[in-house]
Design a protein around this nucleic acid. Structure first.
Lengths: 310, 310
DNA sequence: TATTCCGATAGTGAC
DNA sequence: GTCACTATCGGAATGAG
């Protein structure tokens, strides 16, 4: 079955949203015992199921660039390797599914799982055309109407995908999702040929609104050179959520949400000033942790335990 | 022989200047392989030899204070234990030779090896009378003429003692000390009854001027509550020399040398301002290390190697 | 400016 | 605002019975 295979042939434009360590052996910096249910790791995830449906973007002919090795050598020779260009790999050769992180791609966009996710779900939508990915995200999203519309369309679908992944990870612990979970159990076990994921929604009660905890937006001053849109869950539970700036960059106005565009031409949002010095406040209860990141981390785990059970 | 014994009976007012770990098992925070010659650890040191001579201060009758336990409990009850009062122990019961650190004492003063020495030799001269030890060192040394004179007399002798200890530790590596070292070798091996330390100086060539690298002074804002005068060697080689403020406090005008007293009444020396932000400069070559303590430490070891060979 | 522990802050280098 | 490493800087508690 396609949903459990892990092919990376050029003919396939979608990939299982597998974790990095399954391919590369890379591991999170800290043991993530408290962040995820180990039993959920073995099930097919939401990316797998939704992306194998019929609504996915269509692939094109094989991408005809130089070999990655040649490109890499050229960059190294000219100015040395620059970690801020790390996203180029996915733009140039998505069909090779680098590091097993590609969720889907077509001629114009690639979607990946963030290499250092700051939440349980953390996707990046990356335009593949230089006319887009070389631009500053606030500028481009405020002025290029067609680009913005296309991004909004794709993000709308990715948010549903991300919400579905949240349900896969935590649905069994959620009180408000119980109607959905129980109906799903019945639906999947009542026949030898259960309906595909896309047809299930119409057959099931709504359950919890996971979509309300998915956010999409861009950083005012991205560190990575290629324009990218973050789609992530709000709970901020990840072993890669390690620094104050990590938290602030996703939980302050330093993040411009997609629905805030277009910005006014002279908007102050373009110049957040000393944002790394801003206080850290809990995304859920609003408690101010000032600059105490370690205390915030402890608190976020407590909020996470409550949030899952909602 | 007294010079190699380690008695702490009330009748004795001097003690071998043994290292702390010989008594308490305490060890330096980092392995001190590079700071001292292991072979020198087994020989009697300069404190032992000089303090067993006839010029030492005379002891008095047993010190009649409350028991240390009673004093300790009183402090604990009133305001809790305070590490800034750590020197009280030596003032109150020097005859018990606490932690093996007492070099000498009498009714009025006690001399100890600093518990956390910042150099190869680091003594503290501590007055035992509350009328002195409760005062601010800059104020008292600038105004109490008799006290200052007494301190200067004692420090003059302690500097000779410290210089002798430097010679014991590093003399065998010193080019300019060769005449002394060779003559000493001859003197000590030519007879079965070598002269006592105090008589040797007249029989030997001067050799290296170790005294020129011994400094005495007080901190402008001491952390320890009981007034104390530092007598130390300049090379700053010690596993307890670990922080910028350690270095600055012994190598800037934050240290007021004994010969600088009395200070003028309105002297700026009383208010060094933001001294912990001052640059660190090598005591020997003057090189400015700004705030790079780790780099300074490496450099100090290099200077140390050269300095020993002078 | 006592130490020690922990953590926040800052600079660098990286393919 | 990429990470990872080192080191600097900053506050709080501190022993012993």
């Amino acid at each position: 079955m396609a949903s459990t295979s892990n092919t990376s042939s050029p003919e396939e434009q979608t990939h299982d949203a597998i974790t990095a360590e399954e391919i590369t052996g890379e591991e999170p910096p800290n043991s993530p015992q408290t962040s995820t249910d180990p039993s959920s790791q073995k099930r097919p995830n939401a990316f797998t199921e939704l992306m194998s449906s019929s609504k996915k973007p269509k692939p094109t002919a094989a991408f005809t660039s130089q070999s990655p090795g040649a490109l890499q050598k050229a960059k190294d020779a000219s100015k040395g390797w620059d970690p801020r260009n790390g996203l180029a790999l996915y733009i140039e050769k998505p069909e090779t599914n680098p590091e097993g992180r590609v969720v889907e791609y077509d001629d114009d966009y690639v979607v990946i799982n963030d290499k250092y996710p700051k939440a349980s779900v953390h996707l990046l939508l990356i335009p593949r055309k230089p006319e887009y990915y070389t631009q500053h995200p606030l500028q481009l999203l405020s002025t290029a109407t067609a680009f913005r519309a296309e991004v909004c369309n794709r993000v709308a679908r990715l948010k549903v995908l991300a919400a579905s992944e949240l349900r896969r990870q935590y649905g069994h612990l959620s009180v408000s999702d119980t109607p959905y979970q129980e109906a799903l159990e019945v639906l999947m076990s009542s026949t030898d040929d259960p309906p595909p994921p896309k047809e299930r929604a119409a057959l099931l009660p709504p359950g919890r609104d996971w979509l309300s905890d998915i956010v999409a937006g861009v950083h005012t001053h991205p560190s990575m050179n290629h324009l990218h849109i973050h789609v992530f869950s709000r709970e901020m539970q990840s072993p890669w959520m390690k620094h104050k700036k990590h938290y602030l960059s996703f939980n302050t106005t330093f993040l411009v949400r997609l629905e805030e565009f277009p910005l006014d031409e002279g908007s102050e949002r373009f110049h957040p000033g000393k944002w790394p010095n801003w206080d850290m406040k809990c995304w859920r209860c609003g408690k101010n942790f000032k600059n105490k990141f370690a205390a915030l981390k402890v608190h976020l785990e407590e909020e996470f335990e409550q949030w899952k059970k909602e």
